[in-house]
Amino acid sequence: MELFTPDFGLIFWMFVAFLLLFLALRKWAWPVIIKSMEDRADLIDKGVEYAQNAKEQLEGAREEARKYIAEAQKQQAEILRDAAKIKTQIIEEARNDAAREAQKVMDAAKLSIEQSRKEAELQFRNEVSKFSLEIAGKMMRKQMSSDKAQTELVDKLLDEIEKN
């Protein structure tokens, strides 16, 4: 049977064709293809690893950031609380100072008013005594315009002296 008897020419050419194909592909194709495939696989592996690391780092960074934020918030709250305290304190102090100052001013005013009043009283008394003396002098002069009245007064005064 023709089908089951290998033909010499075909065997020969098959050897030649296969050998040429094998040599050509071994030199130019397979190493390049295999190397490229493996390189790419490596690259992808590395990429995945890198991405995972990056993700982890990102996760860590986020955690850290959250921590920082929390701390900052705590500090902020503290600062705010302190500030509020200081504020009230300052206001309190200011109020006290103001009160004290006002007191001082008022005291001084009172003192000066008192002094003025005393001076005015003194002056007024002096005035009054001056006026009363003047009035008394004027009345005396008017009453003592008659001799009789003079003598009567002298008498009266003398009486008084005598009584004493």
Partner: peptide, 28 residues
């Protein structure tokens, strides 16, 4: 005689080899 004619099968063989080379070189 010794017969190494480029018969139908031989030509098909060479064509197949060329096709394989072309395919792999396209990848390269």
């Amino acid at each position: 005689p010794w017969d190494i004619s480029i018969s139908k099968n031989v030509l098909a063989l060479l064509l197949a080899a060329i096709v394989v080379t072309a395919m792999m070189m396209s990848v390269v």
